[in-house]
Design a protein around this nucleic acid. Structure first.
Lengths: 124, 124, 124, 124
DNA sequence: GTGGTCTAGACCACC
DNA sequence: GTGGTCTAGACCACC
């Protein structure tokens, strides 16, 4: 089921937040290939947004190949699992590299970072 | 020297991007206690921004105690090393926790993440 | 037999696409004078369209004299060959002129176009 | 200069017509690399359209790499001539093949088509 | 009911 | 002035 934390005060536009939430759900396989998305109007009502805003999200997700829409029958998730797995890996690698870069630029050594990670990972 | 990647198309306001870049330089000790910052007009020219925007950045950094301005003599970095170290640690911990949360939400296990990190850290 | 490439996402209404496809089949003599067309309901089922949409197509084709319907016995193709030949020629001339106009507006010269056509025609 | 024949009665959406007109101007080199486009509001006024509609056109052209926009300084044409030439050729080839296919499907022979083309090309 | 297009008009950030 | 986001609400085609 779709869960959203829309932050109206955030500088990142609402439609981007919604888009990102759906993309995340697809990549986490909470939304599976073929799943029906709520209609534009329904989701707009749930999120208390204008239908145009939701339409922009769906249109953008369709352009990027995550979902597919047909007049009269709404939007469906459209993704092959293999492609998703590659995408997920490349995203998480990219995030980790960004983290490393930031840590190094702040003056932490490789050892500092390893210690930190070990500590935070065992706490989970 | 100040290095900036200003992204005008980003939803996060330009002045916040500049502020963050300077904060990072201070924490990384590339800008040291007592260092002179470029004048508002000079930095504005370099970044092709309106002087008002840069003024807003300096004012905000002064409010938070990172820099100090005096009439006629510009702005100087003002920070004690100890305070910086605590700040840096809390920032990098926060970043790593955010990374972990994202990885988990994408369906990666603790083992997946450990493998990934070991691989990327030894490549560095 | 009727072959259709219905594009639901196209801005040109579905019923016009169907109508055009049938007209083309008649002009290409794949549908001959006297041939029986599938019933409205049958064609609707095949194309996954609403029977109303197909009825609109047949009604319009009848208005233009391409087909003829009788109560209880469906629709039949109705066309004299001579009339068709003139129609076909004027259609194909019109299409070619439109092609030429587009090519010229893109900056191609008469020589460019002749070369292109010779190349593509001998490849067939 | 931008010339438009917007047909409000056409089934193809206004924003698509505007987009196509601009694309055509770029490919015909009537709009050159670096040229400034009229602002969203200006073009909207000229075409008697809502600014949102023009914004949609510009956004879409930017997505496809034809133009580039910056806050506060409007949109500029962005295209390398070489890339354009390839694009033009592939478009015109595609159009000609579609024409040929249609002509063949209407029962014209290669000779019929050659005669027709020679006649219409010398008339120009 | 579904999505697609379009208008009118507001408010924002940045120049 | 520039573009970007968003709302409110209309009308369309197709189901």
């Amino acid at each position: 089921m779709l869960k959203f934390n829309i932050d109206a005060a955030s500088p990142v536009p609402v439609y981007q937040q919604v888009k990102q939430a759906i993309t995340l759900d697809i990549m986490a396989n909470r939304l599976k290939d073929g799943d029906q998305l709520p209609s534009i109007r329904t989701l707009a009502r749930i999120l208390k947004l204008n239908p145009n805003t939701v339409a922009k999200v769906y249109y953008s997700l369709e352009q990027e190949g995550y979902i597919e829409g047909r007049r009269g029958s709404g939007y469906q998730v459209k993704c092959q699992k293999g492609k998703m797995d590659n995408l997920k890996l490349s995203i998480i690698e990219h995030e980790f590299k960004a983290f490393l870069e930031k840590a190094f630029s702040l003056g932490f050594t490789k050892e500092d970072i390893e210690k930190l990670m070990r500590r935070l990972l065992t706490n989970e």
